[in-house]
Nucleic acid binder design. Structure first.
Lengths: 205, 205
DNA sequence: GGAAAACTTGCCAGCTTGGAAAGATTCCTA
DNA sequence: TAGGAATCTTTCCAAGCTGGCAAGTTTTCC
């Protein structure tokens, strides 16, 4: 993995991981108010000044974990055979990836609440989200031989996938369903594939 | 319009408008660096402290103009006859609304550059964008009798519209096409309506 | 082994943020 | 229309945040 990196690089990665993990844990266990640079630094056993060398804000530290997960999605997509239709790749990857969330529903709920209530968290979340989204657009464009900048297709597919993910996770998190998360995702994807209930109502009314 | 408001309310709206207009003009004419609370306040003829009573940041002030335009989109959609399919409402409203942009392409380009280069601008832009997006989802859900929280349909349609808008405006702004913006939008909408190039490639390959 | 490079840390100056209270303006009622 | 209540603007300023700097450590590389 990173054993081909020098000691210094490994330490940096470890410090960064320790910091974001500390930030995340503090939020989950003691609430957002408990997440101060000082507290994070102490939990990660570095100085507050070092914390600022790694993250510009506590929000960035908290959400850094999500960044890693988001990039694992696109990595998984790229890892699928090139001959496979993107759609199939996505249908295969998404339920698998989210499976990792099932054990931490409580944590996700806390996170979503924080994002909803705290403007800085919301802003940082959107930044994180946007970055992941962009990666997905590019992965799709690459696979389909389209242009991530100009073509509608890859952007639309990525946006649709994002909606599916977001909606499923929200419903699952708020506990308004008994269905397991991966199944929810699969259902939503099936619904999407069956025929988008988009604008095809044109002549009908 | 707002003549049914008292003098005080009208003055507040005017001050707010003056501040965001000043912020916008400063950015367009002198660059983002020139947009300081002090400069904005001076241009709007109020104290710097008053600026902070209206906006939490210069970015918020700059983008306040966009907020107004975004809400005009959903208002226009709501103003269409209820019997009209949403899709038709959107196809009618969007090209009309963006027509107002044609005379300010330079300004939009400057804005997009600022958003691309400045992290704080990007974050605030995403917040603004998200709010507008949510309004659109709700307007669509209302019209189609669906649930903005639970159903995929209104979210997907809103997301698709957002992609269309964003892609069209980006292409138009960067000058990689000669087509007029409203026409670009119409073409993109037509492309979307004709058949989403989404995941329907499933059995094919 | 030791110099060079990179990282951590404490210090601190400058900026940002927002509370408090005085002054100015608008509102409301008699 | 006078005048008290309510609200908005402004000045002042304290507390907190931010990021540069240089000294002290650790890692790298020859």
């Amino acid at each position: 993995m990173d054993s081909d990196l020098g000691l210094r690089e490994r330490k940096k990665l470890a410090t960064r991981a320790a910091l974001s993990h500390a930030a995340w844990s503090l939020m989950v266990e003691h609430g957002l108010d408990a997440v101060t640079p000082e507290a994070i630094a102490e939990a990660a056993d570095v100085s507050p000044r070092t914390f600022r060398n790694y993250f510009a804000s506590r929000e960035e530290a908290i959400l850094d974990e999500l960044v890693r997960r988001a990039s694992s999605v696109t990595e998984s997509v790229r890892a699928r055979p090139e001959s496979e239709p993107v759609w199939d790749s996505l249908a295969h990857v998404l339920p698998t990836v989210v499976a990792g969330l099932v054990s931490e529903r409580r944590d996700i709920v806390v996170l979503m609440h924080a994002i909803k209530c705290d403007p800085a968290m919301q802003a940082q979340h959107l930044v994180t989200y946007e970055r992941g989204h962009q990666l997905l657009v590019e992965a799709i464009a690459e696979r389909t031989g389209t242009d991530a900048q100009r073509d509608l297709a890859p952007r639309l597919l990525a946006a649709a996938v994002a909606v599916v993910l977001r909606t499923s996770i929200e419903m699952w998190a708020e506990g308004s369903t008994d269905t397991a998360l991966p199944d929810l995702i699969q259902e939503a994807l099936a619904q999407l594939r069956a025929g988008l209930p988009l604008g095809n109502s044109a002549p009908t009314g």
